[in-house]
Computed example of a mutant assay.
Amino acid sequence: MFEGVKKTILGMAILCFISGCIEIFAAYLIVKFNAIEKALIINSSLAFIESLLFIAIISIGVYGIADQVRGKKLIWIFFGVGCILFGIK
């Protein structure tokens, strides 16, 4: 099934899948605990974990295209990712 898929794409997809599973599990915990205080704690923890996964996914993608992109374009990519991370905070 994954014979023709590049390792970079597969790695990014696996991390996205893990991210989605974490989101679903967090939603389950919020419903299970049924308390606003605990829901806020779960949601803030989720924001931290998702930010780390986002950085990992972007890093894998940039690593995958680093040989194709040179100089200024790579700087613009990092600048764009920095703006996204700044906006998340």
Rank of each mutant, 00 (worst) to 15 (best):
G82C: 06
I84E: 01
G80D: 14
G87F: 02
S51G: 15
I42T: 05
T8V: 11
L52F: 15
I84Q: 04
A47L: 02
F79E: 12
K72D: 13
L53Q: 10
I9W: 13
C83K: 11
E3F: 02
S19C: 07
I88F: 05
S59I: 14
N43T: 13
Y63F: 11
A13Q: 03
I42E: 04
S51V: 09
A66N: 13
M1G: 15
I58M: 04
A47Q: 04
K32V: 01
E50V: 02
L74F: 03
G64S: 07
G80L: 15
R70M: 05
S19N: 10
E23H: 13
R70W: 00
L53G: 14
G80T: 13
R70P: 04
A26V: 03
K6I: 07
I36H: 07
T8L: 04
E50C: 02
G64K: 06
F78N: 08
L52K: 02
M12L: 02
L40R: 10
G20V: 01
T8H: 03
K32W: 00
G87Q: 03
F79P: 00
K6L: 12
E23D: 04
L40D: 06
T8S: 06
G11P: 07
F78E: 11
A66I: 08
L46Y: 05
F54W: 10
I55W: 07
F54Q: 09
I22R: 00
N43K: 08
L15E: 06
E3H: 03
W76M: 14
V69H: 06
I30V: 13
I65F: 09
L29Q: 01
I36D: 08
G82M: 03
F25I: 11
A27P: 07
L15Y: 05
S51I: 13
A39M: 09
F54K: 14
L29D: 03
K89E: 10
L46V: 03
I24H: 05
I55M: 15
G20A: 04
L29A: 07
S45K: 10
I36N: 07
G20W: 00
I55T: 11
I14H: 01
E37D: 15
V69G: 07
L74T: 06
F48Y: 09
A26N: 00
G11L: 12
F25S: 15
L40K: 08
L10A: 14
S51D: 13
L10R: 13
C83R: 12
G87I: 01
G64N: 05
G87E: 02
Y28F: 10
I60H: 10
L53T: 10
